[in-house]
Amino acid sequence: MLFVVLALAAGVGLGYAQRGRLRSFASLPLSLFLVLWLAFALQLVLVYAPVGARFALVLGSYLLAGAWLWWSASRLREALLGISLMAFGWFLNLLVISANGGMPVSRAAVIRAGLPWTDVREGSLFKHVAAGPDTPLRFLCDVIAVPPVHRVVSLGDIVLLLGIVLFVSQVMRSDATRLPMQAAASQR
């Protein structure tokens, strides 16, 4: 959660720097986000799922997140650039996960990040596999070590986080009067 908290903070900072307002978020219908919580719930279920069902659950979770991205792209035109960037990051991760049956983790990157090498199949929400010399799309795997915070991320992760930063700032800058709740309040 560390990275997303930093991305959210950066997005809010960028939004304020561009004279945006956090209250624009209060105008978004909460139902819009429901599918994201469903995708998150699927990831939590992974902990209790039999090993054979884990990959299907990971894919299901990715498809739900993709459905949210597609749906919100059609509803939040003001934040289209941020959504597109998030969707690109989502797609890069989905691509490499589909090709490998999980997100491959580079052993060298894990060591560089200052982490012990363990059985990656058994950790971090059970969506990782060990990367080998023949792993397809290796450049999209978890190969980027971030030693200060002891994490290893993928290119898709970085693009997704940048998309979140942009999305937050774009929603903050969006014309609140055009969003459903503000419009209803102004008519009262």
């Binding site: 959660m1 959210l8 986000f33 997140a65 991760n93 983790v105 990157a109 290893v152």
Partner: peptide
């Protein structure tokens, strides 16, 4: 009203955390 707005903002931002959990795949020791 302000409290409701604050909760809605927090929920919207937390939902992006849910997106990260669902679509991101960083490795950390757990």
């Amino acid at each position: 009203m302000l409290k409701v707005q604050a909760v809605r903002i927090a929920l919207a931002l937390a939902s992006l955390g849910a997106l990260w959990a669902a679509a991101g795949a960083p490795w950390k020791c757990t």
